[in-house]
């Protein structure tokens, strides 16, 4: 370590070394690691700050599992065997996020393949450019657009009834259709680009060769393209899953009145609930679940974390 430091100093000079190490240390320690540790610490505490600030730091200010216990079993006088609302919301969020991810994958893989291998020159460029444009528009505005589309008075209802398919308007928001469509929409780009980047580097000759040997198109994809695109697919799925499980704006705007997203519960603990420790505990559970699922995904597909985000 000392040796390394010496060569590092010699290579970069004092000023630059201090800048590099200082900035990275500030980032990693003060902005990434310490806040997470404090949040972890916080999640094991009582909410004295709101209930009774004078007891903070006193003998009652001890570590407790109360917040995690609450997530699992609810308040002490909860008649159910577990915290029905929160646990249900939690699992629904995770499962819905997985569904959104699969939906995006199915939707985007053909497009990514088309852009990378089939489309050529100016056309491909135009399509890629036009893919990007919707994503400069704010996430909230995108959700807002879906609300206009899917509202009870919305465009889709109007069209469907105009054609005569429907006689009654469907409440897409209550049925969560709007939410899933909006979430799927929000992260299309993050699915397409990693896959696109990988498939683009696939040698066209490989596909030609496979076709030459008489492979059907789905076999070509199953045996040649998809194995090659695996890192991109994993990367895209990771991003989409993480972002949709952690989404807040879309559920707030598009979620039905009866269906909550787990992040919304966290938000409530911080906002109206004024119970930061409990919110922290919930956030930790969300984060650990997400990370765990992603690690499993990467293990399954044998992709290293270093390949994500490229």
């Amino acid at each position: 370590m000392r040796n390394w430091l010496r060569t590092f100093l010699a290579r970069n000079g004092v000023g630059l070394s201090v800048y590099m190490l200082g900035a990275v240390a500030l980032w990693v320690i003060v902005m990434i690691v310490l806040p997470q540790l404090f949040m972890l610490d916080f999640s094991f505490r009582n909410n004295w700050q709101q209930i009774d600030p004078s007891r903070m730091g006193g003998p009652d200010d001890v570590y407790t599992m109360v917040n995690y216990h609450f997530l699992a079993f609810g308040s002490p006088n909860n008649p159910d065997p577990f915290n029905v609302v929160d646990v249900t919301v939690f699992f629904r969020t995770i499962i819905a996020a997985i569904c959104v991810t699969l939906f995006d994958l199915a939707l985007c893989y053909p497009i990514a393949y088309y852009l990378a291998q089939v489309a050529r020159g100016g056309k491909a460029r135009l399509l890629v450019l036009s893919l990007i444009i919707p994503f400069w528009v704010n996430e909230l505005l995108r959700a807002f657009a879906f609300r206009i589309l899917f509202g009870e008075e919305g465009t889709i209802n109007a069209i469907l009834m105009g054609i005569g398919i429907l006689s009654d308007p469907i409440d897409f928001v209550r049925e969560d259709v709007a939410l899933y469509a909006g979430l799927g929409y929000a992260y299309i780009l993050l699915m397409i680009f990693p896959i696109y980047n990988v498939i683009e580097s696939l040698d066209k000759n490989q596909i030609e060769a496979a076709r030459d040997l008489g492979s059907s198109w789905w076999r070509i994809h199953r045996r040649v393209v998809i194995p090659f695109a695996k890192p991109g697919i994993t990367s895209g799925c990771t991003m989409v899953f993480m972002l949709s499980a952690g989404a807040l704006a879309a559920p707030q705007i598009l979620g039905g009145p009866s269906s909550l997203w787990f992040t919304q519960i966290i938000y409530q603990w911080f906002n109206t609930g004024s119970n930061w420790p409990r919110g922290s505990a919930y956030a930790i559970v969300l984060m650990l679940t997400c990370v765990l699922l992603v690690l499993i995904l990467m293990k399954l597909f044998k992709v290293k974390i270093g390949e994500i985000g490229r």
């Binding site: 806040p35 952690g246 930790i284 990370v291 994500i308």
Partner: peptide, 14 residues
């Protein structure tokens, strides 16, 4: 890779 809400919360708490 960490959900944005978690980053917000940890920053706030810290």
């Amino acid at each position: 890779l960490v959900p944005g809400v978690v980053l917000g919360i940890s920053t706030l708490v810290f």
